[in-house]
Lab assay of single mutants.
Amino acid sequence: MALNTPQITPTKKITVRAIGEELPRGDYQRCPQCDMLFSLPEINSHQSAYCPRCQAKIRDGRDWSLTRLAAMAFTMLLLMPFAWGEPLLHIWLLGIRIDANVMQGIWQMTKQGDAITGSMVFFCVIGAPLILVTSIAYLWFGNRLGMNLRPVLLMLERLKEWVMLDIYLVGIGVASIKVQDYAHIQAGVGLFSFVALVILTTVTLSHLNVEELWERFYPQRPATRRDEKLRVCLGCHFTGYPDQRGRCPRCHIPLRLRRRHSLQKCWAALLASIVLLLPANLLPISIIYLNGGRQEDTILSGIMSLASSNIAVAGIVFIASILVPFTKVIVMFTLLLSIHFKCQQGLRTRILLLRMVTWIGRWSMLDLFVISLTMSLINRDQILAFTMGPAAFYFGAAVILTILAVEWLDSRLLWDAHESGNARFDD
């Protein structure tokens, strides 16, 4: 018995066209964080690309023209004298008006014999932002004059995390709450300039795509075929072959399989920071003279006294001054041990922890910024005066060393310790 099946006739004509040209192939790229070699397709503007294995951002879609970056830099340069030299806060102490600005706080630190601690604050609040705007201006002028731009481009990517104007702005709020127990506070004209400078700096850093600047100024022929001998440069993120001198053909720094002496430098910085954190938390970090009496505060006791007036601000200072430094030390110690013992479990967790400490590390400088600003506000000789204690130097040095330890660690070593050939990683 035959089955009668109805015929289905399409209502619209289906047209099949042959592909007349070869589909576009992607360029081969190595991930600078996990060293995976993959094919990167062509990316349009405002599109980002991520590593298929570790999800690290390979290409950032946010990109401004150099002219727009230069305009932002010149605007920031105009704001800087007002943000640093004009009063941020006014207080009335014992019937006398006192003005506080950024430069005055750094000068008070240096004047009291601790120039190293003052230079830490100076670099993060004044030096690094000033280098940022002058570097962008150098790129703008240098591109037109045919100057060598490689050193500036190499420095810009590392400079971003040292620009800490946003953290200093939080420190202004913390210092205001600490001082309000002794005097009446009012915002100064410099505060508005400083807030504007923070906003412009944040926007500029978020749109400063150094890798795209490398592509514009020093374009290189990408690798179009897969080759395990391809290496990625950690300076400019170019994937290719080393030249005859073993250097990256684009930025001219040595092109090595792994960062040289990464573990040794990381261990040295980490152990030194552990040693410095002990006096930083045991010795007094601030000293207040009130009517001839002397009151010393460690980091913890200062947080407890701050909690009596504002528990939320005390929580912020606790996280930045105690929780973050010790968390960074514990995480980095764990990561280094996992590399030495070739741990194969929990790779995803370790990668996330490394990215976390990379982002939060700079916030530990908050305590030094609060001390710097408070020193310029309260300084009335023996009637009422505020000065920093010996722990300030140890704390600042420990924070900087932990930042350097994270920067010096080559994250690809975590993958080397893991089993080879993993296309995915999980716990």
Rank of each mutant, 00 (worst) to 15 (best):
L3N: 13
L3V: 14
N4H: 09
Q7N: 12
I8F: 11
P10D: 14
T11P: 14
I14S: 10
T15K: 13
T15S: 12
E22P: 09
P24H: 12
R25H: 10
G26L: 12
D27Q: 13
D27E: 10
D27I: 09
Y28Q: 12
R30I: 12
C34W: 00
P41H: 12
P41R: 14
S45N: 12
S48I: 15
A49V: 09
Y50A: 15
C54Q: 00
Q55W: 13
Q55H: 11
K57L: 14
R59P: 11
L66Y: 15
A70K: 12
A73H: 13
L77K: 05
L78W: 10
L79S: 04
M80D: 09
P87A: 06
L88W: 02
L89S: 06
H90A: 13
I91H: 02
I91W: 02
G95I: 02
N101R: 03
M103Q: 10
M103N: 08
Q104F: 06
W107L: 10
W107F: 15
A115T: 15
A128C: 12
A128R: 00
L130G: 13
I131C: 04
A137R: 00
G146Q: 03
M147F: 05
M155I: 07
R158N: 13
L169F: 13
G171E: 01
S176G: 06
I177E: 03
K178E: 01
A183F: 04
A187M: 15
G188L: 05
A196D: 08
A196L: 13
L197A: 04
V198S: 14
L200I: 08
H207F: 15
H207A: 15
L208R: 08
Y218C: 08
Y218E: 07
Y218M: 03
R221F: 08
K229G: 08
R231N: 06
R231E: 03
R231M: 05
G240W: 05
P242L: 09
Q244I: 05
R247D: 08
R247T: 07
R247M: 09
H252C: 02
R259V: 12
R259H: 10
R260Y: 06
H261N: 03
L271D: 05
L271I: 07
L271T: 06
V275A: 12
L276D: 08
N281G: 08
L282H: 08
I287C: 04
G292R: 08
E296G: 07
I299Y: 01
I299P: 05
S305Y: 06
L306R: 01
A307T: 10
S309E: 06
N310A: 05
A312E: 12
A314W: 04
I316R: 00
I322D: 10
L323Q: 05
P325F: 02
F326I: 08
K328L: 00
V329T: 09
I330E: 02
L335M: 09
L336I: 10
L336K: 05
F341L: 09
K342A: 13
K342W: 12
Q344D: 15
R348I: 15
L352G: 12
M356I: 08
W359Q: 12
I360M: 11
I360T: 03
G361D: 04
R362H: 05
D367P: 00
I371W: 01
S372E: 12
M375D: 00
S376Q: 08
S376M: 13
L377G: 02
D381C: 02
I383R: 15
T387I: 10
M388W: 01
A392V: 03
Y394L: 02
F395V: 01
A397W: 06
A397I: 05
V399E: 01
V399H: 01
V399D: 02
V406K: 11
E407R: 07
E407A: 05
E407M: 06
S411W: 08
R412I: 00
W415G: 08
A417C: 08
A417L: 06
A417Y: 10
F425N: 15
